[in-house]
Design a protein around this nucleic acid. Sequence first.
DNA 1: GCGACAG
DNA 2: ATCTTGTCGC
Length: 237
Amino acid sequence: MNYDKVTIPEAIVMQEEFRKQLKFNIPDKTSITSIAGADISFNANSTLMYAVIVILGYPDLKLKSYSLATAETQFPYVSGFLGFREVPALLQAWKHIENKPDVVVLDGQGYLHPRRMGIASHFGVLTNHPTIGCAKSSLYGFYEEPSVLKFAANPVYEKRSNEHIGFALRTKNNTKPVYISPGYGLTLKKSLEIMKNCIGKYRIPEPTRIAHEIVNEFRNGKLKEGFSQVNSPFELF
DNA sequence: GCGACAG
DNA sequence: ATCTTGTCGC
Protein backbone atom coordinates (compact mmCIF):
# COMPACT_ATOMS: atom_id res chain seq x y z
CA MET A 1 0.00 0.00 0.00
CA ASN A 2 1.20 3.51 -0.82
CA TYR A 3 -0.11 6.92 -1.87
CA ASP A 4 1.89 7.21 -5.08
CA LYS A 5 -1.08 8.25 -7.22
CA VAL A 6 -2.57 10.69 -4.73
CA THR A 7 -2.39 14.37 -5.68
CA ILE A 8 -2.14 17.11 -3.05
CA PRO A 9 -5.75 18.26 -3.54
CA GLU A 10 -6.84 14.65 -3.04
CA ALA A 11 -4.59 14.32 0.01
CA ILE A 12 -6.28 17.35 1.55
CA VAL A 13 -9.68 15.68 1.10
CA MET A 14 -8.32 12.49 2.66
CA GLN A 15 -6.92 14.37 5.67
CA GLU A 16 -10.28 16.05 6.22
CA GLU A 17 -11.91 12.63 6.10
CA PHE A 18 -9.34 11.10 8.50
CA ARG A 19 -9.91 14.01 10.86
CA LYS A 20 -13.51 12.89 11.41
CA GLN A 21 -12.14 9.62 12.78
CA LEU A 22 -9.98 11.18 15.47
CA LYS A 23 -10.54 10.04 19.05
CA PHE A 24 -8.84 11.49 22.11
CA ASN A 25 -9.12 8.87 24.76
CA ILE A 26 -8.87 5.12 25.00
CA PRO A 27 -10.91 4.38 28.16
CA ASP A 28 -9.53 0.88 28.68
CA LYS A 29 -5.87 1.90 28.69
CA THR A 30 -5.02 3.26 32.12
CA SER A 31 -1.47 2.13 32.81
CA ILE A 32 1.33 2.35 30.25
CA THR A 33 4.13 -0.21 30.42
CA SER A 34 5.61 0.14 26.94
CA ILE A 35 6.18 2.98 24.50
CA ALA A 36 7.41 2.90 20.91
CA GLY A 37 9.42 5.26 18.75
CA ALA A 38 8.93 5.27 14.97
CA ASP A 39 11.25 6.74 12.37
CA ILE A 40 12.16 6.72 8.69
CA SER A 41 15.54 6.95 6.98
CA PHE A 42 16.52 6.99 3.30
CA ASN A 43 19.37 7.74 0.97
CA ALA A 44 19.15 11.09 -0.80
CA ASN A 45 17.36 10.83 -4.13
CA SER A 46 16.13 7.31 -3.41
CA THR A 47 12.52 6.09 -3.22
CA LEU A 48 13.38 3.26 -0.83
CA MET A 49 12.27 4.08 2.69
CA TYR A 50 13.76 2.33 5.71
CA ALA A 51 11.35 2.14 8.64
CA VAL A 52 11.76 1.24 12.27
CA ILE A 53 9.52 0.96 15.30
CA VAL A 54 11.47 0.47 18.53
CA ILE A 55 9.72 -0.64 21.69
CA LEU A 56 10.91 0.62 25.05
CA GLY A 57 9.79 -0.21 28.55
CA TYR A 58 7.89 2.59 30.29
CA PRO A 59 8.92 4.47 32.24
CA ASP A 60 12.37 2.85 32.38
CA LEU A 61 12.90 3.67 28.67
CA LYS A 62 15.06 0.60 28.07
CA LEU A 63 15.09 -0.87 24.57
CA LYS A 64 13.13 -4.15 24.47
CA SER A 65 12.66 -4.92 20.79
CA TYR A 66 12.38 -3.39 17.33
CA SER A 67 10.85 -4.05 13.95
CA LEU A 68 12.54 -3.13 10.66
CA ALA A 69 11.02 -2.95 7.21
CA THR A 70 11.38 -1.15 3.87
CA ALA A 71 8.93 0.22 1.33
CA GLU A 72 9.07 2.14 -1.94
CA THR A 73 7.38 5.50 -2.27
CA GLN A 74 7.00 8.01 -5.06
CA PHE A 75 5.13 10.48 -2.88
CA PRO A 76 7.42 13.49 -2.39
CA TYR A 77 8.08 15.35 0.81
CA VAL A 78 5.53 18.13 0.95
CA SER A 79 5.19 20.11 4.14
CA GLY A 80 1.83 19.27 5.69
CA PHE A 81 1.61 15.85 4.04
CA LEU A 82 4.45 13.91 5.62
CA GLY A 83 2.18 10.99 6.50
CA PHE A 84 1.52 10.20 2.86
CA ARG A 85 5.24 9.67 2.33
CA GLU A 86 6.26 7.88 5.54
CA VAL A 87 3.26 6.05 6.99
CA PRO A 88 3.16 3.20 4.43
CA ALA A 89 6.67 2.03 5.37
CA LEU A 90 5.89 2.37 9.07
CA LEU A 91 2.81 0.17 8.65
CA GLN A 92 5.08 -2.53 7.23
CA ALA A 93 7.18 -2.44 10.39
CA TRP A 94 4.06 -2.24 12.53
CA LYS A 95 2.45 -5.41 11.18
CA HIS A 96 5.41 -7.55 12.25
CA ILE A 97 4.89 -6.62 15.89
CA GLU A 98 2.79 -9.19 17.73
CA ASN A 99 2.53 -7.45 21.08
CA LYS A 100 1.71 -3.88 20.24
CA PRO A 101 3.23 -1.14 22.43
CA ASP A 102 0.79 0.95 24.49
CA VAL A 103 1.73 4.20 22.73
CA VAL A 104 3.68 5.08 19.60
CA VAL A 105 5.71 8.30 19.32
CA LEU A 106 6.06 9.55 15.75
CA ASP A 107 8.78 11.89 14.46
CA GLY A 108 6.61 14.83 13.41
CA GLN A 109 3.37 16.58 14.30
CA GLY A 110 0.13 15.06 15.50
CA TYR A 111 -2.91 17.25 16.18
CA LEU A 112 -0.63 20.29 15.92
CA HIS A 113 -1.28 20.60 12.21
CA PRO A 114 -3.29 22.92 9.92
CA ARG A 115 -5.90 20.18 9.38
CA ARG A 116 -5.20 18.32 12.66
CA MET A 117 -3.70 15.46 10.68
CA GLY A 118 0.03 15.33 11.21
CA ILE A 119 1.87 12.02 10.68
CA ALA A 120 1.10 10.85 14.22
CA SER A 121 -2.63 11.34 13.75
CA HIS A 122 -2.47 9.76 10.30
CA PHE A 123 -0.73 6.66 11.66
CA GLY A 124 -3.07 6.54 14.66
CA VAL A 125 -6.24 6.64 12.59
CA LEU A 126 -5.00 3.85 10.32
CA THR A 127 -3.89 1.61 13.19
CA ASN A 128 -6.56 2.67 15.70
CA HIS A 129 -3.73 2.84 18.24
CA PRO A 130 -2.66 5.62 20.67
CA THR A 131 0.02 7.90 19.19
CA ILE A 132 1.88 11.10 20.04
CA GLY A 133 3.53 13.53 17.67
CA CYS A 134 6.94 14.83 18.76
CA ALA A 135 8.46 17.23 16.20
CA LYS A 136 11.90 18.80 16.20
CA SER A 137 10.67 22.01 14.61
CA SER A 138 7.50 24.04 14.35
CA LEU A 139 5.04 23.63 11.52
CA TYR A 140 2.00 25.52 12.71
CA GLY A 141 0.56 27.64 15.50
CA PHE A 142 1.93 30.27 17.86
CA TYR A 143 3.22 30.12 21.40
CA GLU A 144 5.26 31.97 23.97
CA GLU A 145 8.81 30.70 24.29
CA PRO A 146 9.09 28.42 27.36
CA SER A 147 11.79 29.23 29.95
CA VAL A 148 15.23 27.90 29.04
CA LEU A 149 14.95 25.20 31.71
CA LYS A 150 14.39 21.51 31.02
CA PHE A 151 10.70 20.52 31.42
CA ALA A 152 9.42 24.04 30.81
CA ALA A 153 6.44 23.94 28.47
CA ASN A 154 3.91 26.33 26.97
CA PRO A 155 0.75 25.67 25.00
CA VAL A 156 0.67 26.18 21.23
CA TYR A 157 -2.48 27.69 19.74
CA GLU A 158 -3.98 28.00 16.31
CA LYS A 159 -3.90 31.69 15.46
CA ARG A 160 -7.31 32.14 13.88
CA SER A 161 -9.33 30.08 16.36
CA ASN A 162 -7.18 30.26 19.48
CA GLU A 163 -7.68 26.52 19.83
CA HIS A 164 -5.08 24.81 22.00
CA ILE A 165 -3.47 22.26 19.67
CA GLY A 166 -0.14 21.27 21.24
CA PHE A 167 2.81 22.18 23.44
CA ALA A 168 6.34 23.55 22.99
CA LEU A 169 8.42 21.51 25.45
CA ARG A 170 11.98 22.20 26.56
CA THR A 171 13.67 18.82 26.83
CA LYS A 172 17.10 20.13 27.78
CA ASN A 173 18.46 23.39 29.22
CA ASN A 174 19.25 26.06 26.66
CA THR A 175 18.18 24.11 23.59
CA LYS A 176 15.33 24.63 21.19
CA PRO A 177 12.03 23.09 22.31
CA VAL A 178 10.29 20.12 20.68
CA TYR A 179 6.63 20.23 19.70
CA ILE A 180 4.24 17.80 21.35
CA SER A 181 0.67 16.95 20.47
CA PRO A 182 -1.55 13.90 20.63
CA GLY A 183 -1.87 11.95 17.43
CA TYR A 184 -4.74 9.69 18.32
CA GLY A 185 -6.36 8.18 21.41
CA LEU A 186 -4.83 10.57 23.93
CA THR A 187 -5.52 14.03 25.33
CA LEU A 188 -3.19 17.01 25.02
CA LYS A 189 -2.46 16.85 28.72
CA LYS A 190 -1.71 13.12 28.75
CA SER A 191 0.54 13.42 25.69
CA LEU A 192 2.67 16.06 27.40
CA GLU A 193 2.83 14.08 30.62
CA ILE A 194 4.00 10.95 28.81
CA MET A 195 6.63 12.82 26.80
CA LYS A 196 8.04 14.47 29.90
CA ASN A 197 8.66 10.94 31.15
CA CYS A 198 10.52 10.11 27.94
CA ILE A 199 13.20 12.73 28.30
CA GLY A 200 16.73 11.43 28.79
CA LYS A 201 20.08 13.21 28.51
CA TYR A 202 19.42 14.61 25.05
CA ARG A 203 17.11 17.12 23.38
CA ILE A 204 15.39 14.38 21.41
CA PRO A 205 13.19 12.19 23.65
CA GLU A 206 14.36 8.57 23.96
CA PRO A 207 11.75 6.85 21.75
CA THR A 208 12.60 8.99 18.72
CA ARG A 209 16.31 9.22 19.47
CA ILE A 210 16.76 5.46 19.71
CA ALA A 211 14.54 4.84 16.70
CA HIS A 212 16.69 7.19 14.64
CA GLU A 213 19.87 5.48 15.78
CA ILE A 214 18.60 2.01 14.89
CA VAL A 215 16.99 2.85 11.57
CA ASN A 216 20.29 4.32 10.40
CA GLU A 217 22.14 1.13 11.28
CA PHE A 218 19.50 -0.68 9.27
CA ARG A 219 20.03 1.60 6.27
CA ASN A 220 23.77 1.07 6.55
CA GLY A 221 23.37 -2.69 6.41
CA LYS A 222 24.31 -3.35 10.01
CA LEU A 223 20.88 -4.67 10.98
CA LYS A 224 18.52 -7.04 9.22
CA GLU A 225 14.87 -6.59 8.30
CA GLY A 226 12.26 -8.14 10.59
CA PHE A 227 11.39 -8.25 14.26
CA SER A 228 14.15 -8.56 16.85
CA GLN A 229 14.09 -9.01 20.58
CA VAL A 230 16.87 -7.23 22.42
CA ASN A 231 18.81 -9.55 24.67
CA SER A 232 19.81 -7.98 27.95
CA PRO A 233 22.34 -10.39 29.46
CA PHE A 234 22.17 -8.66 32.82
CA GLU A 235 18.43 -8.72 33.04
CA LEU A 236 17.73 -12.34 32.24
CA PHE A 237 16.05 -12.77 35.62
C1' DG B 1 1.49 39.54 -3.28
C1' DC B 2 4.72 37.90 0.57
C1' DG B 3 6.52 34.81 3.88
C1' DA B 4 6.32 30.09 6.14
C1' DC B 5 6.94 25.58 5.32
C1' DA B 6 7.12 18.51 10.15
C1' DG B 7 10.83 14.94 7.59
C1' DA C 1 15.74 13.65 5.57
C1' DT C 2 21.00 13.31 4.08
C1' DC C 3 25.92 15.03 3.38
C1' DT C 4 29.70 16.98 6.40
C1' DT C 5 34.11 20.17 9.86
C1' DG C 6 34.88 23.08 12.68
C1' DT C 7 33.28 25.88 16.25
C1' DC C 8 30.65 28.50 19.84
C1' DG C 9 28.38 28.13 24.39
C1' DC C 10 26.54 25.95 28.55
